[in-house]
Amino acid sequence: MSTDILKGKKGIIFGALNEMSIAWKVAQKAHEQGAQFVLTNAPIAMRMGEINKLAEETNSEIIPADATSVEDLENLITKAQEILGGKLDFILHSIGMSPNVRKKKHYTDINYEWYKTTLDVSATSLHKTLAIAKKQDAINDWGSVVALTYIAAQRIFPDYGDMADAKSLLESITRSFGYHYGVDKKVRINTISQSPTVTTAGSGVGGFDKFISYAEKMSPLGNASAEACADYCIAMFSDLTKYVTMQNLYHDGGFSATGVTNDIMDMM
């Protein structure tokens, strides 16, 4: 249902790969709510995905960018403002990738070059994006940046591997940059810690299907869907959340606050 809650707002959405992507659903919802935005993803990811279909559906342009490249990000943020006709009001950072997880390297025996890649793609890319946006004064006052994270930043989930470290760094960057950008430009920066969700990235984690079932039983409201997460992102982009910043916001059906449930005890 459209309420035009984002009417007149402009942004960048990172990470829409296919219809399974949370970023894909955020783009659809943002378009429905009156926003204009550009879509971006790494060139290799774009070849694997269906982003052109999304661009046509949402009347958006695509700017390929490697989120680990300062040069690519500078070009992205400059061109986005040219295409959209002004400064940005929101950015979605929905990027995560671990070669160690993909190659099933155990956390205690990771490849450290791959580890650097995990941190760079999944976390440092946010710092680079924010630093460039700040230098270019590319985000309007009271703008909103949202990055997607996961509770493995706080708790151990063995098969999540070095992605847990990346999410911890991502959340720290959110707090630190949230302070500085808030003081200077009133830009707010938050992470949303989403339920385990069936996406292309999430499906690569070992035992994912079983864990989704476990999380469903551990969450009083059940697992939050990708579409529901997109709704939350839209709320965070809107002016209704102007004083929320530097927060890690759990969107997980209550999983993060639940010690045990009757369903889990019955299983035991």
Rank of each mutant, 00 (worst) to 15 (best):
K25N: 03
I132K: 04
D231E: 15
M97D: 14
L249K: 05
S125E: 01
R155I: 15
N111F: 10
H127S: 10
A201E: 12
G253V: 12
K103E: 13
D141L: 08
T124M: 12
P196L: 08
D162R: 08
A215D: 06
L221H: 10
L221R: 11
I156L: 13
L92D: 00
I12P: 00
I139W: 02
I95A: 01
K7I: 11
F157Y: 12
G178I: 06
G11W: 02
Y179N: 09
K105F: 10
S21R: 02
N41D: 09
G161R: 05
F14S: 02
H251F: 15
P43Y: 10
H93M: 11
R175Q: 14
C229S: 14
S238G: 01
F90A: 00
L73F: 02
K134C: 03
W24F: 05
A226N: 05
I83S: 00
D165R: 08
K7M: 03
S98P: 01
S21T: 10
S195V: 05
P196E: 05
Q194V: 15
D4Y: 07
V121I: 15
S213K: 15
T3G: 02
L92N: 00
L76P: 00
S69Y: 04
H251Y: 15
V145M: 08
C229Y: 01
L39K: 04
G178R: 05
R47A: 13
L39C: 08
T174G: 12
V244G: 03
C233T: 15
D209Y: 07
L17A: 03
T3Y: 05
C233E: 07
Q36L: 10
S144H: 06
D239E: 14
F37E: 00
C229E: 11
M48G: 09
I173L: 13
G204D: 06
